[in-house]
Amino acid sequence: MLADEALSLFAGYQYSLNRSEHTVIAYQNDLGQFFRFAAQEVGQEPESLTVQQIDVYIVRSFLGILTDQGLTRKSMARKLAALRSLFKFLCREGILSVNPVQRIASPKIGKKLPHFLYLDQVEGLLRASDCSKLLGARDQVIMELLYGSGLRVSELVGLNRDSLDLEGGLIRVLGKGNKERVVPITNYARRAIENYLKMRSDENGALLLNYQGTRLTDRSVRRILDKLVNRVSLEQHVHPHMLRHSFATHLLDGGADLRSVQELLGHQKLSSTQIYTHLTRERLKDVYGKAHPRAKTVIDPLK
């Protein structure tokens, strides 16, 4: 099978799994870069390259070139993940009998602590929308659900009116891998949603609409958040996922157990949630170092 045909087939497979447009395009870009390199390695044009020509040595050479170019381990791991997904798919479909990536080890990446907002910063953003106007009321719903329920942006924009159980204080969310979960919403979020829906006169089933009356996109949510950040004059860069990080951090600070936070976030592995325990520990150490009189000054204990 030609490499271009494999890319098209794989893109269709990813869309069938409800992958976002951004994810599919990123995978296609990384895989396209690899196939162009592989074509050079075998001495032919990319258009005539077949996936059967790819072997472990070409993959290792590709990773070696990326290392020489100074690519970060995180970026290399992302490209290798794209290759793993593609060749695993091709083997499962019977297009290939040998997976050339199977024995390639992933580069080790140190865990980076996620950035979060302090409570007063979040409260400023939650007060920044003009809820007397339709779009302001919608923006308030966005903020209440991103922070109050810890939703991913893709989960937020995918919500429909029939996803809501306002009386029960619950919403049905479609998460990663098409996995559905039910999460609670705050009373603030429930009132914000009720206010927003009362202002709408359309029959669109999507919960969040743009000014044209169509479903809101991930990119639009980012622009809305940027607008609110500017309005309250926050100096740091804030992205929507920071509100999810803040949700988890504030829950743990408030005494929530790790398993409950894992379920609320929709994490498949507990290790994905445990990163927030490191975050809360680091924050407490920072607070302690700045606030306790015996921690402010370093002295020589032998004197």
Rank of each mutant, 00 (worst) to 15 (best):
residue 3 A to G: 10
residue 3 A to M: 01
residue 4 D to T: 15
residue 9 L to T: 15
residue 9 L to E: 15
residue 11 A to V: 10
residue 15 Y to C: 10
residue 16 S to A: 11
residue 17 L to H: 12
residue 18 N to M: 09
residue 23 T to S: 02
residue 24 V to F: 05
residue 24 V to L: 03
residue 26 A to V: 06
residue 29 N to Q: 15
residue 30 D to L: 03
residue 30 D to H: 04
residue 32 G to K: 11
residue 32 G to I: 12
residue 33 Q to C: 11
residue 33 Q to P: 06
residue 35 F to K: 08
residue 35 F to G: 08
residue 36 R to F: 09
residue 38 A to S: 07
residue 50 T to R: 10
residue 51 V to I: 11
residue 52 Q to R: 15
residue 53 Q to M: 11
residue 57 Y to W: 13
residue 58 I to S: 09
residue 58 I to T: 10
residue 64 G to D: 14
residue 65 I to H: 12
residue 67 T to R: 12
residue 69 Q to L: 13
residue 71 L to V: 15
residue 72 T to V: 06
residue 74 K to W: 02
residue 75 S to E: 02
residue 79 K to M: 08
residue 81 A to Q: 00
residue 81 A to Y: 00
residue 81 A to D: 00
residue 88 K to M: 11
residue 89 F to D: 02
residue 89 F to C: 02
residue 90 L to F: 06
residue 90 L to T: 01
residue 101 V to Q: 08
residue 106 S to N: 05
residue 108 K to R: 11
residue 109 I to V: 13
residue 113 L to M: 03
residue 115 H to A: 13
residue 116 F to W: 03
residue 116 F to R: 03
residue 122 V to L: 04
residue 123 E to Y: 13
residue 124 G to L: 13
residue 128 A to S: 15
residue 129 S to A: 15
residue 129 S to C: 12
residue 131 C to N: 14
residue 132 S to P: 07
residue 135 L to D: 08
residue 137 A to N: 03
residue 137 A to Q: 01
residue 137 A to M: 03
residue 138 R to W: 09
residue 140 Q to C: 13
residue 140 Q to A: 14
residue 140 Q to K: 14
residue 145 L to A: 07
residue 146 L to W: 04
residue 147 Y to D: 01
residue 147 Y to V: 06
residue 147 Y to T: 03
residue 150 G to L: 01
residue 151 L to I: 07
residue 151 L to D: 02
residue 152 R to C: 00
residue 154 S to P: 04
residue 155 E to K: 06
residue 159 L to W: 05
residue 159 L to S: 02
residue 161 R to T: 08
residue 162 D to F: 12
residue 162 D to C: 09
residue 163 S to I: 11
residue 164 L to P: 01
residue 165 D to P: 09
residue 166 L to K: 08
residue 167 E to K: 12
residue 169 G to A: 11
residue 169 G to I: 08
residue 174 L to F: 09
residue 174 L to A: 08
residue 176 K to M: 00
residue 181 R to W: 04
residue 183 V to Q: 05
residue 184 P to G: 06
residue 184 P to D: 07
residue 187 N to I: 14
residue 189 A to G: 11
residue 190 R to P: 07
residue 195 N to P: 04
residue 197 L to D: 06
residue 197 L to K: 07
residue 203 E to N: 12
residue 205 G to A: 10
residue 206 A to P: 03
residue 211 Y to G: 10
residue 212 Q to M: 15
residue 214 T to I: 10
residue 216 L to P: 01
residue 219 R to Q: 07
residue 221 V to T: 00
residue 222 R to A: 09
residue 222 R to N: 05
residue 224 I to W: 03
residue 229 V to Q: 04
residue 231 R to K: 15
residue 236 Q to S: 10
residue 237 H to F: 12
residue 246 S to N: 06
residue 249 T to F: 01
residue 249 T to Y: 03
residue 250 H to E: 02
residue 252 L to S: 00
residue 253 D to A: 13
residue 262 Q to H: 00
residue 265 L to M: 01
residue 268 Q to G: 09
residue 271 S to G: 05
residue 272 S to N: 00
residue 274 Q to V: 00
residue 276 Y to N: 04
residue 278 H to A: 00
residue 279 L to H: 00
residue 280 T to Y: 03
residue 282 E to R: 08
residue 283 R to N: 07
residue 288 Y to I: 10
residue 289 G to F: 10
residue 293 P to A: 10
residue 295 A to F: 08
residue 302 L to I: 07
